[in-house]
Design a protein around this nucleic acid. Structure first.
Lengths: 107, 107
DNA sequence: AATTACGGTAAGTGCAAACTTACCATAAAA
DNA sequence: TTTTATGGTAAGTTTGCACTTACCGTAATT
């Protein structure tokens, strides 16, 4: 497989990294701001951010001494495309109809 | 954040589980068939299947002594919905335009 | 009834990876 | 220029988890 999305899935597989990722949903943040209120240390956050960056889930830009991180659409796109391969609209609607039929039977 | 999708991301974060998941893309398979050609033992595959099932990424149905596994759309749906929160069409098209503009400049 | 195929689980092992503390470099403030 | 804020990285520890072997139960063959 060796898909480009592998790193993204591995990255979001960790709960702490998902928490960081979700913190960036509202907008860009510096490292100290991200670490603020989290239950892990600031260096741990730095290490996670490195992994998220390599997974194309965040980008970083320097502003003086501050490192501003924001969500990167690229990684999300990779994951969406991967999942789309397994997504079958027809099957879902078929299952829904089947479930409804089952409900009517048991009533 | 305790989202329903947490287990799904954790499950697909592992490369071996992604390999199993991808094997089921073409259709339902028994455990021995899934394990066939993989570099891990059959019990390992069983353990992974349990996790994938709890993550709503596969379903199982018994056929005699055989356990037939197939892809479950539910888990995929959970992940797609989660990622959609971070997906910003406007931002992507804006970035594309910006990149194109940049290209023209450097030409 | 004996054998074979299938697969779930228990118990134990080993390693990757998520942490910590300590340290250093850089840029902004004082 | 001294101090403070910021954050990356090195080194070491610990712990979770992916794996193995061993075992057992059940259903289909023979």
């Amino acid at each position: 497989m060796t898909a480009a999305s592998a790193k993204s899935f591995q990255a979001l597989g960790d709960p702490t990294r998902r928490a960081i990722f979700e913190k960036l949903e509202k907008g860009p943040l510096s490292v100290v701001h991200i670490a603020e209120g989290m239950e892990v240390s600031r260096p741990a956050v730095s290490q996670h951010l490195k992994i998220l960056k390599e997974a194309k889930l965040v980008t970083m830009e320097q502003e003086g001494t501050r490192s501003i991180y924001r969500i990167n659409q690229k990684g999300i796109e990779l994951m969406l495309k991967y999942l789309d391969r397994f997504w079958d609209d027809a099957l879902v609607s078929f299952k829904k109809v089947a479930e409804e039929t089952e409900k009517r039977k048991t009533k």
